[in-house]
Design a protein around this nucleic acid. Sequence first.
DNA 1: TTGTAAGCGTTATCAT
DNA 2: ATGATAACGCTTACAA
Lengths: 348, 348
Amino acid sequence: MAKSTDQIADATGRPTMKDVAALAEVGLSTVSRVVSGKDGVSRAKRQAVERAIAALGYSRNDFAHTLRTGSARTIGVAVTRISDPFYAQIIEAVESRAQDRDLLVLVASAGDDSTASERVLKRMLNRRLDGFIVVAPEAADISFLDSERAVGTPIVFVDRPPHGMHADVVLVDNERGAADAVRHLVRVGHRSIACIAHVSGRYTSERRQTGFRRGARECGLPDRPDLIVEVEDEVDACLEALRELFSLPDPPTALFTTNSRTTKAVLGALRLLRVRPALVGFDDFALAELLSPPVTTIAQDPWVMGEAAADLLFDRIAGLAGPERHIVLGTRLITRGSGETPPGVTGM
Amino acid sequence: MAKSTDQIADATGRPTMKDVAALAEVGLSTVSRVVSGKDGVSRAKRQAVERAIAALGYSRNDFAHTLRTGSARTIGVAVTRISDPFYAQIIEAVESRAQDRDLLVLVASAGDDSTASERVLKRMLNRRLDGFIVVAPEAADISFLDSERAVGTPIVFVDRPPHGMHADVVLVDNERGAADAVRHLVRVGHRSIACIAHVSGRYTSERRQTGFRRGARECGLPDRPDLIVEVEDEVDACLEALRELFSLPDPPTALFTTNSRTTKAVLGALRLLRVRPALVGFDDFALAELLSPPVTTIAQDPWVMGEAAADLLFDRIAGLAGPERHIVLGTRLITRGSGETPPGVTGM
DNA sequence: TTGTAAGCGTTATCAT
DNA sequence: ATGATAACGCTTACAA
């Protein structure tokens, strides 16, 4: 009743190729050829088909198409948390690249939980994805992804490499970035620097701790294990950690935080204390320059990471063989002020 | 070579139900029954099938399943920009609800552009989505969505109603929220309040302007069209707008901004000026409480919006008929300080 | 309880 | 250039 044209329809109410063929008075394969943009169809028939398509409001059923051809023209992106701006930007970058190639993007927030994430990822895989980009939950056992790869689905990991599995991956140079942060703080005069590391996020957090230690060593700072603490990214936890740090006999004059969520929590905690240590955070975040003092960060570029992952994936989809590739992107120190606080100013 | 088990396979290299049936030495329909969790299968055969499934690493081809059953168990979410935290949270809320029902979520950043967004949305629709949640680009003509609805795909709009189309929609009470902002500013003593509205985002921006005017009127403020300006959400544009506002004969002592992107741009611009007007922004954002002064906002809850949209959609998918529903959610004034600046302090 | 067979809407093969 | 016809992998009467 919606359209004036009489129309037969599929189960879901939509016209099918058969309907188009009937209306255009041509064979089914001719319609298929037109729809798929193949040539070998006379002008006359092609036009008849196009008219019928327009009249019926026909559009191809992707499921039938995929069943037949094997390719869904869809890639999947799974992250641990869509609403984290860092992951959101990765997704947007991938999506933008995918649109260029007329690919659809299936997205999932897998969370950190092992069983839930496995369910989600497996469900996506049932979709016979052409490729998969994954920020893997670190707690989860993702060995099942390996058999998926074995069966031919290219998978690219982002942000952290999969545990015990050789695969394409896009990372930033966490170690070097963290070392840069330390070097910067030492340059402006600090000798006593604390590292506040996020407890979860095993991989990145650990690499950045390692970088922190290496940076400190290279700058000739004494080894101070008491200045390295692991916290949850909540204000309360950070507050407690800071209190302990600043009641040490030789308290830090500067802080390094291992990711932006932790940086934010630390900022929230600092607001409740009288200390104003220098601060450099790994991972840039919106509004960092509007805080007072503006926050100095080690920036990674999620957009570029997403693009790199997508490009790598597309190469694999196109059939690129060869050994797995690790793309390691550089980080950038953004000096904004919080890292400049001279050591003297600090103190409880 | 990947598995020790001999395995036949589909075109893509994966085992099919046929393979499972052969290995388990049962009929095809028995396998189907087991896979779909239907009963009426003897323990013995069920176990044989399960063993075969495990041995082959079989998983159901969703495309074949969907082609046959008609439902893709997939909903679509289209927003204008995934990396905008507001939309990212809506997506995450929808996704979380979808996971409860074992639905997959197809996500797209449609952008603001008309032709591009139409292409993206149409491609999603070819997927025979069970339902669609859309934050529609305002510039775009989305009348084609109407025919999609006519053919039976439930669609729920979020954040703004579709232009010239009756449909389910989840909104916040923009007008009231904006009026609340004005009332708050008047309460702390302001009489001269400017409204800095985002030029794009027609719908929300206009409603919030309307609310601003109504609030001003209800508080007995004089009608001051010169205090309402429209800007792009960039620092430069805001800077220029602010300069003009503050060179008026009777400059504002307080500002109201119509969305968080604009609020941030205005904050960036204010930093370059000597004025420190009071400020209330529509739409809350991360770190608002860490700025100095902390920013007072009219908060909308994207998570609740996403959940409401998802629930409404699920009702429709389940067959709920009846007239379209408009769900209008309230907003919440979060007093943080930037809205408390007494009028006297301001001035160029 | 179990299996056979007929499609779902599309594409690919093969005659014409 | 065109059109039957046979799959693609799955579900679902209908038989047995």
